[in-house]
Simulated assay, not measured.
Amino acid sequence: MASPQLTFAIPYYRGLDLLEKAIQSVFSQTQSDWKLLISNDGGPDPALDALVARFADSRVTLVHNERNMGMAGNWNACLDRADTPLVTLLHADDELLPNYTAVVMQAVADHPDATLYYCQASVVDENGQPSFSLPDRVKRFIQPQPVGPYTQLTGEAALTRLLRGNFIFCPTICYQKSRLGELRFSSDWRFVLDFDLTTHLLLKEHTFIGINEVAYAYRRHGSNATVEYTQNRLRFEEEIQLFNQLADECARKGWQQARRVAQAKTIIRLNLLYCALTDSLKGHLPNAVQKLRLLTT
């Protein structure tokens, strides 16, 4: 058998039950030529080693970081430790669908010069059941409508579309390490680090390939970092700061359409209004007021 070309790297801190489901989803792949790396960033659960040992497979490696590296540090460690040409950062609370490896490897064969490959995702709740999310539904209308098996994103047009609404589910991305080079996630961010990387790749004229097939289950649940950072407004504060930076960078590059979209921040403002309305309906008026104040930023 040829050496595996793809590593599933799981940055882990807590959530052992969901991690087990994530690992099982790797073993459920229709293609078995993969490696699995679990990078434990000082997680508090002593049962982690026993859980991983139960799978007893030479393709699986568990690494304990010597110190807590934070999200960006652990994500970068996953990229650096992977010894295969392709790396997917599988989130510890998500699951791959059985076809993920097959569709990604086919996309790489069909488009070998792309920097990253992403697929469509289904959104599920903590029990794995379909979950409705209005922002996710809106993004379906923002993303390019599929024509054939793939969508190619590159240049200003791609960046402009992403600035109108980030329709790429970050953990679905498979990175081609040789094309990624030295670019990594920035420790300046806690929420937008994935969007920061993808937008700057587009600014550097990299090519993305979207796979127009669902191959990933993205889990939204109460302890999800997205939920936490939405409630405490950190996501919006970081998004506003990043969009301001991107507007300046687009102006220097002469990408005026992308600059205007970044400056307008329409998708951020719409989400702030939606979240403020949701907070109001739940009786969380102080949270709603604080979100509305960000509209003037």
Rank of each mutant, 00 (worst) to 15 (best):
L242G: 01
L153I: 05
Q120I: 14
T154G: 08
R269P: 03
V124Y: 12
K282S: 08
S122H: 15
D196M: 08
H91C: 11
S3M: 15
L295T: 02
A107N: 03
F185C: 03
P286I: 05
N99I: 14
A109W: 10
S187H: 11
I268T: 12
N212T: 05
E239C: 02
L180Y: 12
A47T: 12
C174E: 08
V63R: 15
P144R: 07
G43Y: 07
H64R: 14
L242V: 02
E20V: 05
L193K: 04
G128E: 06
N74W: 03
T61Q: 15
L234I: 05
L134P: 06
S186N: 10
G155A: 03
T160K: 08
F191T: 12
M69L: 15
N127M: 14
A72H: 03
L86C: 07
F132C: 09
L89Y: 01
Q257C: 02
E95M: 14
L246E: 00
T199D: 04
H200S: 02
W34N: 03
T88Q: 12
T278S: 13
A157W: 01
N232L: 02
A276R: 09
D125N: 14
F141I: 10
R14K: 13
H221P: 05
W189Y: 14
Q29L: 05
L272D: 04
V138S: 09
G148V: 11
R67W: 10
L86T: 07
A56S: 15
P46H: 11
G148K: 13
R161P: 03
H284W: 01
T101A: 15
L96P: 14
T151S: 13
A258C: 02
Q256H: 10
L270D: 09
M71H: 14
A121R: 09
S25R: 01
L292S: 01
N166T: 07
P171F: 03
R259K: 10
M71G: 14
E156D: 05
I10Y: 06
E205Q: 14
D93W: 05
D80S: 14
E249V: 00
N65Y: 07
A107M: 07
T7V: 09
I168A: 00
A114S: 06
L96E: 05
L90T: 06
V63Q: 13
A56K: 08
E239L: 01
E126S: 15
F169V: 11
S3N: 13
D33S: 11
Q176M: 11
D248F: 01
Q129H: 10
R259E: 04
K35C: 06
L292M: 06
N68D: 14
I23L: 12
D80V: 13
N99D: 13
T198G: 01
F185R: 02
T154I: 10
